[in-house]
């Protein structure tokens, strides 16, 4: 799906936990997530902390979208 959206001309960032799969399917901008059943959350945290964690991930994804890349790139930090 990521690749088809990119092919249509839209920059796209893929937030996912199993980044090797994201590489295999051809995503260009990849942000590693927390866990498979809750990629953008952590039920062990309280609501406020969890939202803060989610915001950090989304901000990282936005940073990926504003970063020029030439090849498949995993945005670790």
């Amino acid at each position: 799906m990521v690749k088809e959206i990119e092919r249509a001309g839209l920059p796209v960032v893929h937030i996912c936990t199993v980044t090797p799969i994201s590489m295999t399917v051809g995503a260009n901008r990849i942000v590693p997530a927390i866990a498979i059943p809750h990629p953008l959350g952590n039920p062990a945290l309280n609501h406020e902390e969890e939202k803060k964690l989610r915001r950090k991930l989304v901000e990282k994804a936005l940073r990926a979208l504003t970063t020029e890349v030439e090849d498949q790139t995993i945005f670790e930090d």
């Binding site: 990521v2 088809e4 092919r7 249509a8």
Partner: peptide, 21 residues
């Protein structure tokens, strides 16, 4: 995804965040 992208472009979307589990 091809159909989704078509609709997004028609609606003037600039970029996409796609999440997977």
């Amino acid at each position: 995804a091809a159909e989704i992208a078509k609709r997004l472009i028609a609606d003037g979307v600039d970029a996409v965040i796609l999440t997977s589990t």
